[in-house]
C-alpha cells in the first residue's frame, strides 16, 4: 500500500460530480484505518466544501471548474478546494446556531466545515479553502 494517497482533479461545476469524489475518499479513509467518527467528519466537511464551490462559488455555470486536491495518510488529511467565483467573507456568514437563525437555511454548511475539521483557512478573496484534520488516537 502506498504511504500516502493524493488526489488532484479539476471537476466541472455539476453537483452530481461530488458523490464519486467522496466515494473515493471514503474508500481511502478506510484503507488508511481512519475511524468511523473521523471518516464521518471528513465526509461531512468535504461534501460541504465541494458543493459550496460548485453551487455558490461557480453557481453551477457550464465551462467553470472546481479544483480539488486531497492528501491522506494514516495520520493526516488535508485538502484545498478552489472555485472560479468572486469569493465570500466567511466572517460575514450569519451564525446558524444563533436562535434567531435556527430556522434559516443558510450558513449551516460553513459552520459544519469549521466544526468537523481541525483547521480551515480561506484565501484573501474567499474562493479557495484549505482544511486539515489529524486522526484521533482514541
Amino acid at each position: 500500500m502506498p504511504s500516502k494517497w493524493k488526489y488532484d482533479q479539476q471537476i466541472a461545476s455539476d453537483p452530481d460530480l461530488c458523490a464519486p469524489i467522496i466515494a473515493q475518499l471514503l474508500d481511502q479513509l478506510a484503507i488508511f484505518g481512519w475511524s468511523t467518527k473521523d471518516s464521518f467528519a471528513i465526509h461531512m466537511a468535504m461534501e460541504e466544501v465541494i458543493l459550496n464551490a460548485i453551487r455558490h462559488g461557480n453557481e453551477c455555470r457550464k465551462g467553470t471548474f472546481v479544483h480539488v486536491t486531497m492528501e491522506l495518510d494514516d495520520l493526516q488529511f488535508s485538502s484545498t478546494v478552489s472555485d472560479e467565483g468572486t469569493g465570500f467573507d466567511p466572517a460575514e456568514v450569519p451564525d446558524p446556531t444563533d436562535n434567531a437563525n435556527l430556522d434559516k437555511c443558510s450558513g449551516r454548511g460553513v459552520m459544519l466545515i469549521k466544526h468537523f475539521v481541525d483547521e480551515v483557512t480561506y484565501n484573501a478573496c474567499g474562493n479557495s479553502v484549505t482544511l486539515s484534520k489529524t486522526k484521533q488516537t482514541s
Partner: peptide, 15 residues
Amino acid sequence: PEVRDLFSYTNLDQM
C-alpha cells in the same frame, strides 16, 4: 450517534 451529534453541533436539537 454521529447524526444525533450533527443536530447538537448545529443547535437544531432546540428546534
